[in-house]
Amino acid sequence: MVKDKCNMKDDLFVPSIGKSGGLALFWKEGVIVMVQTYSQTHIDALVDGGANVGWWHFTGFYGNPDTAKRPESWAKLKYLKGTSSLPWLTIGDFNEIIGTSEKEGGSDRPRQQMTNFVETINACRLRDLGYTGPKFTWNYGRADSVQIRERLDRALATPEWISLFPLAKLYHLSSSVLDHAPLVLRMTQQPSCIRQKKLFWFESMWLKDQRYDSLIFCKASLEECDALQKVLRVYEEEIKGRFSSNTPTTIKEEIKGRFGAQVIKQHEKYLGLPSLVGRNKRNSFNDIKEKVGKKVAGWKEKMLSKAGKEVLIKAVAQAIPTYTMSCFKIPDSLCDDLTGMIRNF
């Protein structure tokens, strides 16, 4: 049996109907797999990746070969996405392509058929893992000697799963006896650093020494000393100050001379944020509106699905003001403007 030859301990079989269909899932001893649901077209399970990874969601999927029933397959895929919030990987024969470049020979694929698949991928927040090996995974030779080749098999995953396995790679293997190319997914994790840094302990008694205003820690080496001196020189050169409009000019010049400082304008920034926010807050945060506006304008030129637009809004547009909002309360009128721009998109 395949299970014994692959040295697998546990399994789940979904029997075939006649000569078609049939699914199987094998896993090794020590691997914890909790099967959630299964049918003639899918096996859905939760996998324990251990202390460093945690649980993740796995789905082995088979798209309905009948194009009239293909929407049922996409509905099932969306349903399975909603059954878990864990990082998700789905792999299998989806019986569909995402573009004309994934097909050679035979009649053209209906565009709407491919669009439905792409929209389902976007709605499920899935990304294609790519592949190494031959481009096409399915080959069919007709009686009139016309060869049809398509990429029907693939691995898709959410960004969260990709973060867990950033080095994962899918391989398309060759086969002389099967019409589908076997897929092998190697889920290598990011190698962890073996060498551990020596722990540093801060002594609270150092704070009681009145001789020091600041404490600087570095390695006792000439290279560290040179780097520290360079940092201090830059810091000295970049000392800046801002005076209120009521400060007399003579006082300004005296303070500038003592500190060797520069005078900055009100709307200069530090770490991307305004150094001072006055009464006119809209001017201080107007760059947020400009950034969102440029992004939305660029997106409008592209042909995007509804799901694709939703992903861009949540992942990009709504993330732009997050950093500023964590430090300042931006005006309600600016929030209304941003909301309006996103709604119009």
Rank of each mutant, 00 (worst) to 15 (best):
P321L: 08
A297T: 12
Q190V: 00
S333H: 08
K314I: 07
V292A: 09
M205G: 04
G298P: 11
Q112T: 02
E238Q: 04
K281G: 01
K69A: 14
K169D: 00
D336A: 10
A157R: 01
T59I: 10
T322G: 10
A227V: 13
W74L: 05
Y62N: 13
D336C: 14
V316Q: 03
E301V: 13
S244H: 11
I162S: 00
F61T: 02
G50A: 03
G49F: 00
I216A: 12
F243M: 00
K230L: 11
W299M: 05
K81N: 10
F26C: 02
M34F: 15
W55C: 02
T37E: 05
S85V: 07
T250N: 15
G18Y: 11
W56P: 00
Q113A: 09
M1F: 11
K240P: 01
K9D: 06
S176E: 09
P110K: 03
G106M: 02
W27H: 06
I194Y: 02
V35F: 14
P166N: 00
A75W: 05
T83Y: 07
G293D: 10
A24F: 13
F200I: 15
Y79E: 12
I239W: 00
V33I: 09
Q196R: 13
E268Y: 02
D332C: 09
V296N: 12
D93A: 02
S145V: 05
K103S: 13
K291N: 06
D44E: 07
G293A: 07
Q36P: 04
S101C: 13
A307S: 14
E223Y: 12
D108Q: 14
A181M: 12
D209V: 08
Y212W: 15
I288P: 02
R186I: 00
P248C: 01
V184E: 01
V146C: 10
K103A: 15
G141D: 05
H42I: 06
A168V: 01
K103V: 09
S192T: 10
K19P: 05
D209Q: 04
L23N: 06
N64R: 11
R186W: 00
V31I: 06
W74V: 12
K252G: 05
T100V: 15
E102D: 09
P15F: 05
C225N: 15
G278Y: 06
E301R: 14
R142Y: 15
A319L: 01
K281N: 04
E310C: 12
L183N: 06
E150P: 09
Q262G: 03
I121F: 12
P274I: 01
E29H: 04
T249P: 00
G241S: 05
I17L: 13
S73L: 04
S204V: 07
